[in-house]
Write a protein that binds this DNA or RNA. Structure first.
Lengths: 195, 195, 195, 195
DNA sequence: CATGAATGAGGCTTCATTCAT
DNA sequence: CATGAATGAAGCCTCATTCAT
């Protein structure tokens, strides 16, 4: 599948818009085709089936998402700053693309387990980025050495994800970016009064 | 609707099993009726429609879930112990009811926005329980006084939810209960080395 | 079937009201039972099935309708006056019972062919009354002797029926009774200028 | 909706046959599709829903019915001959298309009020044709000048309709066409002996 | 006689996918 | 490559009727 063909991208962009506007279940292939300006059948020249469109949407968008995050993090000097940068990038990229936020936080979660598994595979590189920060922090003495990698990763991702989902469900009425530093604080210092 | 009617509970229990076994979208009303040992039409004497079954499943199960959590927490003396108890109860209740865990963590998330909103309303009391612990901790000096209530709630719930979902998706291959104390540690002390 | 039992009549009257209010297809047996103040099952002690209720409604009401018409006509001296009386009675009885008019002119016509045949059997005595008037008129020289009995009966009944149906469909906005004399005129003198 | 598409007409013709054969309520969309030789879903490319098929059947058939009637009437020189032509056309068209007669006289009357209203709108042009004849007859002195237009229209239509319905219900055992001249006689001269 | 909880058959419609052009 | 007309499988819900009490 030649992903450089313009129609491929037209369809991807149309899919994001259609899903964000109409919701997952009301996003018929014919609607995506119409918005993309192609015939229904043309979709099947570029995608195996409807699920493939959705996975591809997530792949394309998350690919850029992760890439940008990695580039930004590379420039930071220590794990703590990298973690803050990750949080900021996470919030900033979804805040600046509300349609995509709706799709990733709400609509794509309505998919069936088979699709969910594929989506998780796409997410894996992102989790590896998180893991890298944690490991680096444990090595350079920023974070505690006895951290359970999986649990920390789940705490970080779970917190970011829940925060963004809440923001989307509250119709994005408040500024997500402003939460970044507080979330970073919480994750690094925890709830307790420091002694 | 008299919820003490045996058929009502038969249908609720059957629904949990059918959804866990077949997945949300393959859970036809007729399948639930068959498993419950009643006629299809009988379902509609106790539930308004299919969605009402699903909401009721969540209401019944989460109602018990929250009630047990509240009862356990009451007996604890301070916010820190209450938080640990909440985490333990959260993990324990889902670990001891794998079918329900599949339903709440995976299947019910595939539902449409209307159902999602109702599910969120059912969850609200649980979030209030979490809020209560945080507030108590801030008052009695266990937790920092400058915590952002919403963010902390999102961190706690997001972490627990993500942890359970991962456990379910990994086919429950490891012991969820054993994670409770580490998760509590992480949430209260954060990632950083304490000084 | 003891038709003197009060419940029998309660159900008949309830059926007329329910059909007139809700229409034929929305007239569930349970609705009729509720309005009659009896249990659903009780209906089946007095009627064989739902169709039997409807036929009985028509039988009871048309029985009275025809009886009153016959009594009034008997007192008239010639065929012409009898025809006028028939028209007046037809219009008057339906005009004074709007619920019944809705049921007979609109709702009962939605029934299936089997029921339609039974309804036609109930109507037969009325057609015989009409036939009697025509025959009498032909014998006593009021009406032409070469009239085709069936056609005349169809003209008379068709005209009355269509007139009442139009009146019901126009929401009974005009006075039906006032039309009686004109209709009688039309039927007896026809359209042409008399020579 | 391009009504010249062959499938559109296939479906219309199939619907007439299926309704006439099976009756209104037993006329499932799938039966019509099968008889038309198309897939169930194809129906919905040409019709909005099942009701739309029925309305369209009536529109198409009554459209032709009225058109032919108008064309025949135009060639007649006076109101009296036009009325006779109308009656003949009414009988002839239904007599030559027994399936359609069953559909229009019996089956379509079982429809719900919403559909009945649409059917009445389709009939309106026919009533206007009748009105035209009456008005012309009153102007040219063929008919009495004091006729009540609505009542006359109801007498004519009611008589024709009742006559055809009776003929259909009697299983078309006699010749409908032969009645035309007698019906015309009746309508124009009435019942009374002319003086 | 009376109840009313339980039954279960039956159909319209949507929409992902195909394939002849 | 591109089209878009055609396909056909699949499920929620209603409501007349029964029968154990």
């Amino acid at each position: 599948m030649n992903k450089r063909k313009p129609k491929y991208n037209q369809i991807i962009e149309a899919a994001v818009e259609v899903i964000a506007e109409n919701g997952y279940h009301a996003s018929q292939v014919s609607k995506i085709a119409k918005k993309a300006g192609v015939a229904d059948g043309t979709i099947y020249l570029y995608f195996k089936n409807k699920e493939d469109i959705l996975v591809s949407v997530f792949e394309e968008k998350m690919g850029q998402f992760i890439e940008k995050t990695e580039m930004t993090i590379e420039q930071k000097e220590n794990a703590n700053e990298k973690l803050l940068a990750l949080i900021e990038m996470h919030f900033q990229q979804l805040a600046s693309n509300p349609l995509l936020a709706v799709v990733t936080q709400l609509e794509l979660r309505q998919s069936n387990p088979a699709l969910r598994i594929k989506i998780n595979q796409v997410l894996k590189p992102y989790l590896i980025v998180i893991d890298g920060i944690i490991k680096e922090g444990m090595q350079d003495g920023t974070f505690r050495k006895d951290l359970n990698l999986r649990l920390v990763r789940q705490m970080i991702f779970g917190t970011l994800d829940e925060t963004v989902t809440n923001w989307v469900m509250k119709d994005r009425k408040y500024n997500l970016m402003e939460q970044a530093s507080d979330v970073h604080q919480l994750l690094t210092n925890g709830l307790k009064v420091s002694k």
